[in-house]
Design a protein around this nucleic acid. Structure first.
Lengths: 145, 145
DNA sequence: CATGAAAGTTCATACTATTAACTAATTATG
DNA sequence: CATAATTAGTTAATAGTATGAACTTTCATG
């Protein structure tokens, strides 16, 4: 499926361009985008949200802390846990990134034939579902009874 | 475009699974797949084919050499250049990988509704073209007159 | 209360990719 | 033809990405 590989590559290039534009490495940017949902997460929630290890999440958050985009605090309900909260600077950058992504999305749609836009999105959705289902089937094969 | 990100992530997971299955790191596997076209390349051709630097191609080829999948030779026509050729073991593994990818592709299609298969592929193709055209338009913006 | 599990951190490791500097070979130029 | 410029590949340094193991502290459970 070389077509898929090419689409993936385009996306990766886009991500790299964003990282350069905002001066935040790709994975840290992805981490920052988690805060679209909420301004505060536990470190472990970040790890699950990004589907990486807690060890990796620690490093990513550290990177954001160093850039002043988030800060770390204790968790009142659990002495082991850390809360990670957006700073004002982080919230500002996040808004910028969101606006940029929104514009990018619109621009991409503009490059598609108008009659085909819904079709393409639908096709992508079907593809994602197919892939997820295939993955689940494989997981079941490996660990089935 | 969270849908796109999810599709990309599925692909990346699939690539990681393949790497584990064949015991070759993802980038080296990608390099090996270049040899589908020809059994022999110059190192610089590998770099362009993969769209990485010559320095990176050197390391990737070194990895394949260490696994006995390719070997390096001089180039009769140019004293600076190196030829990289598939070994018998490399050819064997390549055939395995190809067969596996072929099966994977078929399986993915099986998970799509039959009436939608052509549509999904067409949509992907349109998307790729849109992305490439958008990228070229941006490149022109940066370096235009 | 003792024991097992969980949260986050640190360190080591492997992979991915780039740049800069370098040497040797080839090509371009006057 | 001699010299300058360019090219091919290599090496080392660097930054980013992710995992696993070991560890300490805190929480959950019987």
């Amino acid at each position: 499926m070389d077509l898929m590989a090419r689409v993936v590559r385009c996306c990766q290039e886009q991500v790299a361009e964003q990282a350069a534009r905002f001066g935040v490495p790709p994975a840290q940017l992805r981490c920052l985008l988690l805060f679209r949902r909420r301004p505060r997460f536990r470190l472990g929630e970040i790890a699950s949200g990004l589907e990486v290890t807690r060890s990796r999440a620690t490093a990513l958050v550290e990177g954001l802390v160093r850039r002043g985009l988030v800060r770390k605090q204790g968790d009142p309900g659990d002495g082991r846990a850390r809360q990670v909260a957006l700073t004002a600077g982080g919230a500002r950058l996040l808004r910028e990134v969101e606006a940029y992504l929104h514009r990018l999305h619109r621009r991409l749609l503009d490059w598609l034939p108008p009659e085909e836009r819904a079709r393409v999105l639908e096709g992508l959705s079907l593809l994602e579902q197919a892939m997820e289902r295939m993955k689940q089937a494989e997981d079941r094969e490996c660990f089935g009874p």
